[in-house]
Lab assay of single mutants.
Amino acid sequence: HFTSQQLQELEATFQRNRYPDMSTREEIAVWTNLTEARVRVWFKNRRAKWR
C-alpha cells in the first residue's frame, strides 16, 4: 500500500511522463522512500489502468 503522499508524487510524475526511465524511477524511489522496482510496477499498472 502507498501513502497519499507517495501516490501524489507518483501521479504528478505520471501526468508529466508515462514512461519514466531508470534514473527518473530511481529519483522517484528516493523521494517516495520506495524501491525502484515498486515504482516500476506502479507505473506499469498505472499505464494499464490509464488505457
Results as ranks from 00 to 15, higher is better:
Trp42Thr: 01
Val41Met: 14
Arg51Lys: 13
Arg46Asp: 04
Ile28Phe: 01
Trp50Asp: 14
Ala29Asn: 01
Thr13Pro: 00
Arg40Ser: 07
Glu26Lys: 13
Val39Phe: 05
Glu27Asn: 09
Trp50His: 07
Trp50Tyr: 08
Ala12Arg: 13
Gln15Pro: 05
Asn17Asp: 08
Glu11Lys: 04
Trp31His: 14
Phe43Tyr: 06
Gln5Ile: 10
Asn45Pro: 00
Leu7Asn: 07
Ser4Leu: 12
Val30Glu: 14
Trp31Ile: 15
Trp31Glu: 12
Arg51His: 12
Leu34Ser: 12
His1Cys: 08
Phe14Trp: 05
Ile28Pro: 00
Thr24Val: 09
Arg51Ala: 12
Met22Thr: 09
His1Phe: 11
Gln5His: 12
Ala12Asp: 10
Thr13Asn: 15
Val41Leu: 13
Gln15Glu: 09
Ala12Phe: 09
Glu9Ala: 14
Lys49Asn: 08
Asn17Arg: 03
Thr24Ser: 07
Val39Arg: 00
Arg25Pro: 01
Thr13Lys: 09
Arg16Cys: 09
Glu11Pro: 00
Asp21Phe: 02
Leu10Ser: 01
Gln6Gly: 02
Val30Arg: 14
Thr32Ala: 08
Glu27Val: 10
Lys49Gln: 13
Gln5Asp: 09
Lys44Cys: 07
Arg47Lys: 03
Arg40Lys: 08
Thr32His: 07
Trp31Pro: 01
Trp50Asn: 06
Ser23Ala: 15
Arg46Pro: 01
Ser4Trp: 13
Gln15Tyr: 07
Ser4Gly: 07
Arg51Pro: 08
Arg51Ser: 09
Glu26Asn: 12
Arg47Trp: 04
His1Asn: 11
Glu26Phe: 12
Ala48Gly: 05
Glu11Phe: 03
Thr35Tyr: 02
Val41Pro: 00
Gln8Val: 10
Ser4Phe: 13
Thr24Gln: 14
Ala12Met: 11
Arg38Val: 15
Arg16Thr: 11
Gln6Leu: 06
Arg38Tyr: 11
Arg38Trp: 10
Val39Ala: 02
Ala48His: 09
Gln6Pro: 02
Glu9Asp: 14
Trp31Gln: 14
Ser23Glu: 14
Glu11His: 04
His1Asp: 11
Thr32Phe: 11
Ala37Asn: 09
Leu10Cys: 00
Glu27Thr: 10
Gln5Gly: 08
Thr3Ser: 09
Ala12Lys: 12
Arg16Leu: 10
Trp50Lys: 06
Gln6Thr: 05
Thr32Glu: 02
Arg16Phe: 11
Trp31Cys: 11
Tyr19Val: 04
Glu11Leu: 05
Trp31Asn: 14
Phe14Cys: 05
Ala48Phe: 08
Asn45Gly: 07
Glu11Ile: 05
Arg46Gly: 02
Leu34Val: 07
Lys44Val: 10
Ala48Pro: 01
Gln8Asp: 10
Asn17Tyr: 06
Glu27Cys: 10
Phe43Met: 02
Leu7Gly: 02
Lys44Gln: 10
Arg51Thr: 11
Glu36Val: 05
Ala29Gly: 06
Gln8Arg: 13
Trp31Met: 15
Glu9Gln: 15
Phe2Pro: 05
Glu9Pro: 01
Arg25Gly: 02
Phe14Asn: 05
Asn33Asp: 09
Ala29His: 02
Ser4Lys: 14
Asn33Tyr: 06
Glu9Thr: 15
Thr35Pro: 07
Lys49Cys: 07
Pro20Leu: 02
Pro20Val: 02
Ala29Ile: 03
Phe14Thr: 02
Tyr19Phe: 12
Val30Lys: 15
Ala12Trp: 11
Leu10Ala: 02
Glu11Asn: 04
Trp50Gln: 09
Asn33Glu: 08
Arg51Cys: 10
Arg38Cys: 12
Pro20Gln: 02
Ala37Trp: 13
Thr13Ile: 15
Leu7Ser: 05
Phe43Ala: 00
Val30Cys: 09
Asn33Met: 07
Leu34Gln: 08
Glu9Cys: 14
Asn45Trp: 15
Gln8Trp: 13
Glu9Arg: 14
Ala29Thr: 01
Tyr19Trp: 11
Asn33His: 10
Ile28Gly: 01
Asp21Glu: 04
Ser4Glu: 14
Asn17Phe: 06
Arg38Phe: 13
Lys49Gly: 08
Arg46Asn: 02
Ala37Gly: 08
Glu26Pro: 02
Ser4Pro: 14
Gln8Met: 12
Tyr19Pro: 00
Gln8Phe: 12
Ala29Tyr: 03
Arg25Trp: 04
Arg40Pro: 00
Thr32Ser: 07
Asn33Val: 05
Arg18Ser: 06
Gln15His: 10
Glu36Pro: 07
